[in-house]
Design a protein around this nucleic acid. Structure first.
Lengths: 337, 337
DNA sequence: CTGAAAGCGCTTACAG
DNA sequence: CTGAAAGCGCTTACAG
């Protein structure tokens, strides 16, 4: 669509060399003399030549494109992941093709990805059906689930240690004298919610306790608000709650403070998960579990690149350590607050 | 990189037609009989054929790719814009190639975009130098500045009516009995900050007032916190402040409430701009100016598509109405709060 | 090191 | 409506 962008043939003409020579001048490591390269570069500069990445992709069979499939970006964890993912990919010479999905059109979207010959697919806050996973596998395109895990699928995954994170939350709350501890789940079918809950229950069991109540927030702001009302608008309310992610925890805190007039943490302690930037803002000061985004990104890139380079063909699952960050929204062990 | 993906020639062989016929079967509107199309589709299905979008882009000269250049995603306004932009583009048959920039490497990044033959470029939270703008113009690639405006450049732009938005804030504060009104700027060289301030000063002037103080936050959380300390940690402090965007306003509120122990809005009124989701959260309940993201996206797509289709070659600047959303962080006109 | 040639997988005039 | 052929702009064996 360029008005008439210069091609390698144009450059070759001006430089008085073959078209192959021009190509070599732009391929690091190609066998070309310094003299020839210089001539080419000068001519290219004069013409404003830019190699056509699409043509290169076609002939070399390597698009240098990675697709990121995103369902939503309103939970701040995902934009930050996308930003860092994209930067890391760029640094490795790959470009990021972003696809937004909504329940229903996933199939169409994955077809588009494959049509663009992407070399890998990263699923961010998005589901992956098993049929799509095997379709990608059939084309040899590696798929990686970020912050999600699905046992049976031919897809790699990177998650934080949700089991251990949930366990730490349980200990934090139990050791601070809470006796009526509740849980608010995210999406019931997501591995993060299930694992965080499982670890949480395990941790409580280690203190001889069990959750006194449970509700489902579905990882949405409104869903979490409803769950909070369900759990706290009755006489024998919990004295603390672990919410499966920060995004929901903010909604829960809003309901507790502004609708139910409960004080945090004096009346109710709240703990979230993700440690998104807002968690440390003064308006919430939310105790949370930090996912170590940097390491998750690093693991993602490492796994994907090795799969693209065919060093690992098998799927791989990385689990990154998580750690609790204690703030003011939950009473502390040993403390009087 | 596919193990050996079926090509149109493979499908042609199986279907017993020419390769051109296969191509036609996948081009809406191409002249092909229903019978032939059916044969082709059946064969394609059997082979798991998927047209190669890169090859199509090469030969047709239309990549169906739009680049979005992003500087940062920590101000929630931008991820939401990116999400909606990407969905709108997808709906129009375009894919989004995302590029992260940081001051310095912008040149490299734009070169990459052009190499991928993108049909248009959208700048999100990113600067555009005039040399890059004219380079894009030279290739005939339309550039659109989202939420930014640079007079001299050969680039379209979509912004909210920042002048009018700032003016409304001035009236809101002046009419609520505030007498010492301050302003915290974003980046001094950004049109959004300048226009919001200009409108703000105009609105105050219409009430016979001028700002009593001014500081610069640079659109960052920490910068805004510093600006707040600068403005409010002295005896004769302002009784209200307009902060050039919500992201900074949250930091300002944190400093006012948690460091300086001032009550909002009783001691100080705070107003932001953007009306990001967090503004309506209970922890801040921030009075803000809503940018009408939906209309901004719509205008962006309309302008870009018409430029891509060569209906408009000239740059175009859309200004979308903005409106103040009054919440609890600022005392209201006529009210006792 | 260098050039001529083949070919990546398509679309699209051009004839029929 | 249909097919043979040209060509998009590159990379990469293959000879020299």
């Amino acid at each position: 669509m360029n008005k008439s962008a210069a091609t390698s043939a144009d450059v070759a003409d001006l430089a008085g060399v073959s078209q192959s020579a021009v190509s070599r001048a732009f391929s690091p490591g190609a066998s070309i003399s310094a003299k020839t390269r210089e001539k080419v570069l000068k001519a290219a500069d004069a013409l404003g030549y830019r190699p056509n990445a699409l043509a290169r992709a076609m002939i070399s069979g390597r698009s240098r494109l990675v697709a990121v499939l995103v369902a939503y970006l309103d939970n701040q964890f995902y934009p930050l992941a996308l930003e860092q993912l994209s930067r890391a990919l760029q640094a490795r010479g790959y470009q990021t093709l972003i696809f937004m999905t909504e329940t229903g059109n996933q199939d169409v979207v994955v077809q588009k990805m494959l049509q663009y010959q992407v070399e890998g697919i990263i699923m961010l806050s998005a589901e992956l059906s098993s049929s799509l996973a095997s379709e990608c596998a059939a084309t040899g395109t590696p798929v990686l689930l970020f912050n999600r895990y699905v046992p049976g699928l031919p897809a790699s995954s990177v998650t934080s240690d949700n089991l251990e994170g949930g366990r730490q939350v349980a200990h934090h709350l139990a050791d601070s004298g809470h006796t009526r501890i509740a849980f608010i789940a995210g999406q019931e079918n997501s591995s993060t919610s299930r694992d965080r809950e499982a670890g949480f229950c395990k941790g409580l069991a280690e203190r001889g306790m069990t959750p006194v109540a449970r509700a489902v927030g579905g990882y949405t702001f409104d869903g979490a608000a409803r769950a909070a009302r369900e759990l706290f608008a009755k006489p024998d309310r919990p004295d603390s709650v672990f919410v499966a992610n920060d995004h929901m925890a903010f909604a829960v805190m809003d309901v507790l403070r502004n609708e139910l007039r409960l004080r945090i943490p004096q009346d109710v302690s709240v703990v979230g998960y993700d440690d998104v930037p807002e968690a440390s803002w003064g308006g919430y000061d939310l105790t949370s579990v930090s996912q170590n985004l940097g390491e998750m990104i690093q693991a993602t890139i490492d796994i994907l690149m090795s799969q693209i380079d065919r060093q690992h063909v098998k799927r791989k699952a990385a689990i990154i350590p998580a750690r609790l960050v204690a703030r003011g929204s939950a009473r502390m062990p040993g403390g009087s607050t």
